[in-house]
Write a protein that binds this DNA or RNA. Structure first.
Lengths: 208, 208
DNA sequence: GCTCTATCTTGACATTGTCAACTAGTCAGT
DNA sequence: ACTGACTAGTTGACAATGTCAAGATAGAGC
């Protein structure tokens, strides 16, 4: 009978309900914020009954967790792409590119960022989500590792350095996402701040 | 008739309902997370009817905004106290103390931090809240200003430097609050990371 | 006394998350 | 082709929530 769903997608009744639901989630977060996502609204937009989502995601947190997983996959890809786009550069430049990709992801894909980090979802309690998060962050950890081995920061604690860069990227991302800069600070663009913040890191010149 | 409310507090029926409600909010956020705060639950804990909160805070967001205002007041005080606790130190040391207070606030007063930054509340649309936020951040901005004037960073853009330190503090605070450090990173304590992250800043030695 | 106003209560309504029971397609094995 | 099992989705119900309108209550000012 193939309901209203138009075309090709394979599957049983709907076609590909999980994807349709997650697409709806993205819409809703964009329109009304991560706090106002509801299972029923997502179901409505996907054209199914109000309790269909539960069969795929269990409950509301499950749906948000699935959405967040996609976010971490995208984030990981973007960071890797950023890193690889630096050819012939230093380890510090590659690390800055990873950080830049992190912030750009938050700004360009705010719905994902919001659900991943600011929706109150308990990441560690969702096994697969937790693994996705670790996998994405491995890109950043790897870039820090390269900085240590190639950049001569042999005395630095890799954990400290990782948290330093991660904090920098995550903090700037958070500030950029809710554009509530104090007066005077909103004159510069996000890109200015990205360049400025990661440019500061260039003051590290192997003396650490 | 003075209902169940026991003692001294002044006022009409309840005594001091706004304070009682905000105290209830703190409890609820601590127990069930910022996403699970409800007007009715707060009313229940304060011993009033389910729609009493609306008369003080308008709606749910209004209640969270009032709670967040308190958070910004505390945060501002804590940062100022941190700054003033450094006697005879450099501007950079005072700035590091401000940042440390920021992170400690997030860790020690997580309910406030969560509602202020991660509850989906739209700060700019709440005038008084916005002012409170600006006032608190003025402490950080001031400390950056001192760094520039006293520390010899005359070529640095104060906006860039502010966002740099703010990102660092806010990012570490966020990471610390949801303790989802990747494997290996959770061996160090929050205090280790605070010291490490703000210690990196000491690599800035007036050459910027 | 009386009125006025701030404070709080009651009752209602639509929306939500979740659960149990049910229906409808689809496939494997015979 | 028939049966049974399984997957996908529906229907109906329930308690909880945010919000609104209307009423009740208590203190202030006169």
């Amino acid at each position: 009978m193939r309901t209203s769903r138009d075309s090709d997608s394979a599957g049983y009744h709907h076609g590909d309900l999980p994807n349709a639901l997650l697409a709806a989630v993205a819409e809703i977060v964009e329109e009304k914020g991560a706090a106002n996502v509801s299972l029923r609204e997502a179901a409505r937009r996907a054209g199914v009954s109000h309790s269909a989502p539960a069969h795929h995601f269990g409950d509301k947190e499950g749906m948000l967790a699935a959405f967040a997983e996609r976010g971490f996959e995208i984030l990981g890809r973007e960071m890797a792409t950023g890193r690889d786009s630096v050819v012939g550069g230093s380890a510090l430049e590659r690390l800055a590119a990873v950080g830049t990709a992190y912030v750009r992801f938050a700004v360009d894909c705010t719905p994902y960022f919001d659900v991943m980090f600011r929706s109150g979802i308990d990441t560690p309690s969702h096994e697969h989500l937790h693994a996705c998060a670790d996998k994405a962050l491995a890109v950043l950890i790897g870039a820090v590792g390269e900085l240590i081995s190639e950049g001569g920061y042999t005395e630095a604690d890799p954990r400290q350095l990782t948290v330093y860069f991660w904090s920098l990227a995550h903090g700037l991302a958070s500030l950029a996402v809710d554009r509530s800069m104090p007066p005077g600070l909103d004159e510069l663009t996000i890109d200015d701040y990205i360049a400025g913040v990661f440019g500061m890191s260039e003051l590290f010149n192997g003396t650490g």
